[in-house]
Simulated scan of single mutants.
Amino acid sequence: MILLLSLAAMSSTAALAQTPPERPIALVIHGGAGFVPRDALSAQDRKAAHADLNRALDAGYAVLQDGGSALDAVSAAVVVLEDSPIFNAGKGAVFNARGGHELDASIMEGHTRRAGAVAGVTTVKNPIKLARTVMEHSPHVMMAGAGAEAYADTRPEIERVPNSWFDTPKRRQQLEKAQREEAAKSKREANAATDAPKYFGTVGAVALDRAGHIAAATSTGGMTNKRYGRVGDAPVIGAGTWADERCGVSGTGWGEYYIRYNAAHDICARVAYRGDSLQAAADEVINKLIPAAGGDGGAIALDRDGTIVMPFNSGSMFRGWIKPDGSRGTAIHEDD
């Protein structure tokens, strides 16, 4: 009897030893990079921003904890950020020069390389949902403007709102200020290629799930006072959003430079092809290449080990993270 019990115990121990360790999960989000002086944020503003970042983390991480996909996790997190009036996406989108809103978003699943994006939509409450629908239910990757709106008409699950729904007093004030400053300049100065955007802002998320899969998503209202249907990097796969088997990135900053340098993909390419660490790759692209060209901004990225990096050179970047060990945090400025 003792021998049988001993053998049973040994068998149980061996079975436990053969059980593979649980794979790590991780989530990182951002609410936009830009120069936001500390004294420009009241204690109430700061508290509200941290609260909404935490709500987005909670939404995405709950999916991962339940064994859900990275794709579902980034979708859930970005929807929370789009619904917040604090960030430049969805409800908090900035105004264009005509006093309206044009929204962009993209999403990508790393292990399949599936991707979807929309640009210049005006009545879609959550552009990230439409971007995912483009990925999952159409043969295309990107749809824009009236065509994207027409496609949304065919998808009853996509919630629609009047363009005025995106209005917020803060964004109206930013538009009026930008237009006053523009009127005070000469035509040459107002159109100078060296004029930097006065406001950056985008939201995004990157997640790693239990299956070891990575997904990334990005959504934005673009640039305050933008004209001519301007589209930045957020909906451009490889520029503002990228995910593959090793790495995922969501960018935020001066979109023209992120497009020119294919910033999100370049970070992951350095990991894949040169064997760079994620930190080294992200620092090189975000803090060296982009500034050397004249741009600025930031990015969030993670790899298949759950390593999280959040480089930025713009003075501040709203961000939040949950690491594989479960530790979490939110921050706005460099020394937070």
Rank of each mutant, 00 (worst) to 15 (best):
G298L: 07
A205Q: 09
V74H: 06
A299S: 12
A292E: 15
Y257D: 10
F35T: 01
R155E: 11
A56N: 00
S314W: 11
A193E: 12
S42F: 00
K185P: 00
R114P: 01
A178D: 05
P324Q: 00
S219D: 03
M223T: 15
L41T: 00
D283L: 01
A97E: 13
M142K: 15
A56E: 05
A178R: 12
E136L: 14
W242Y: 15
A26Q: 02
K288N: 13
E245Y: 09
A239T: 05
N287Y: 02
A76C: 07
N287K: 15
K177F: 12
A73T: 05
P21T: 10
F200G: 14
V236R: 03
D336A: 07
W165L: 06
A17Y: 10
A264T: 03
E159C: 04
I332S: 04
G204W: 11
H101V: 07
H50D: 12
L175R: 14
T330K: 06
M1W: 07
N96W: 09
E149W: 12
A89T: 09
A183K: 14
S69V: 08
T252D: 05
D276Q: 12
M310F: 07
K323I: 00
A33K: 07
G60Q: 06
G31K: 01
K47C: 08
F200E: 11
S106L: 09
P162V: 06
T133N: 14
F95A: 08
K91V: 04
A15L: 15
T13Y: 14
G320K: 09
R98F: 08
G212V: 08
M108A: 05
R188G: 12
I128S: 02
A263C: 13
D266G: 01
A152C: 05
T123L: 03
H333T: 01
S42N: 04
L130D: 07
S316K: 04
H137T: 06
I237F: 07
G255R: 11
S69T: 14
K185T: 01
C247H: 08
V118F: 08
